[in-house]
Amino acid sequence: MTRPHRQRVLALTPRERLEAGWASLDIRENHRCVRGPQTGMAMVRGRMGGTGNAFNLGEMTLTRASVVLDDGTVGSGLLGHGWVSGRDHRHAELIAMIDACAQHERFRERIDELIASLYSERQAREQQNSREVAATRVDFFTLVRGE
């Protein structure tokens, strides 16, 4: 599992579900925050039609955190980072903690299993939402006068 994929799944998972998943792993690693959690703003950019020139769509609130495990991995550069939209400091710190632990061989397999289950839950929710939206779909058509 790639790190960007793991970060995306963690950021899109509700914090309550992430807390439950983290607790189920039973990983007891002490950590300290190197940076944050901090809340700030990020510029969101868009493209007209997805391919046009980029433009500034607006700003969004973003929270980030960086942690290091107490086993001293900061010297080796294995930091955990977490970003989440909104102001949830605990969510960002939890993502950073999972990211830091996922870089260690002894935790990687269990964390990958958690990420896979969170990803499949998210896909199931998205499919359910798509079915609900499709049930309310209205097809419009235009009548042309025959002149």
Score class of each variant (00 low, 15 high):
T39S: 15
T39W: 00
G40V: 07
G40D: 06
A42N: 07
M43C: 08
V44P: 02
R45P: 01
R45L: 10
G46K: 12
G46V: 09
M48G: 13
G49R: 12
G50K: 11
T51N: 11
T51H: 10
G52P: 05
G52F: 05
N53I: 01
A54R: 14
A54M: 13
F55E: 03
N56D: 14
N56W: 01
L57G: 04
L57I: 12
G58H: 10
G58D: 04
E59I: 05
E59T: 11
M60H: 03
M60Y: 07
T61W: 01
T61N: 07
T61P: 01
T61G: 06
L62H: 04
L62K: 02
L62W: 01
L62F: 01
T63C: 15
T63P: 06
R64S: 11
A65P: 04
A65Y: 01
A65Q: 02
S66C: 13
S66P: 00
S66I: 11
V68G: 05
L69I: 05
L69H: 05
L69F: 05
L69E: 10
D70W: 00
D71V: 07
D71L: 06
G72Y: 06
T73P: 00
T73A: 11
T73K: 10
V74K: 08
V74D: 09
V74G: 09
S76N: 13
S76C: 02
S76P: 00
L78S: 09
L78V: 06
L79N: 05
G80W: 04
G80Y: 02
G80T: 05
G80I: 01
H81A: 06
G82A: 08
W83R: 09
V84D: 03
G86C: 06
G86A: 10
R87M: 08
R87A: 07
R87G: 05
R87K: 14
D88A: 08
D88V: 08
H89S: 06
H89F: 04
H89N: 10
H89G: 00
H91K: 13
A92L: 01
E93Y: 01
L94S: 04
I95F: 02
I95G: 02
I95N: 05
A96H: 03
A96T: 03
M97E: 04
M97Q: 12
M97K: 12
I98Y: 02
D99A: 06
D99R: 07
D99E: 09
A100N: 04
A100Q: 04
A100R: 03
A100L: 01
C101N: 10
C101L: 13
A102T: 02
F107A: 03
F107Q: 06
R108S: 11
R108A: 15
R108T: 10
R108E: 13
R108G: 00
E109P: 00
R110D: 12
R110L: 00
I111R: 09
D112L: 08
D112I: 08
E113W: 01
E113C: 08
E113G: 15
L114C: 09
L114R: 12
I115A: 02
I115R: 04
I115S: 02
A116S: 14
S117N: 14
L118T: 09
L118N: 10
L118P: 03
Y119N: 15
S120Q: 15
S120N: 08
S120K: 14
R122L: 12
Q123N: 14
Q123I: 13
Q123F: 00
A124R: 15
A124K: 15
A124I: 03
R125E: 15
R125N: 12
R125Y: 02
E126Q: 15
Q127L: 14
Q127F: 03
Q128S: 14
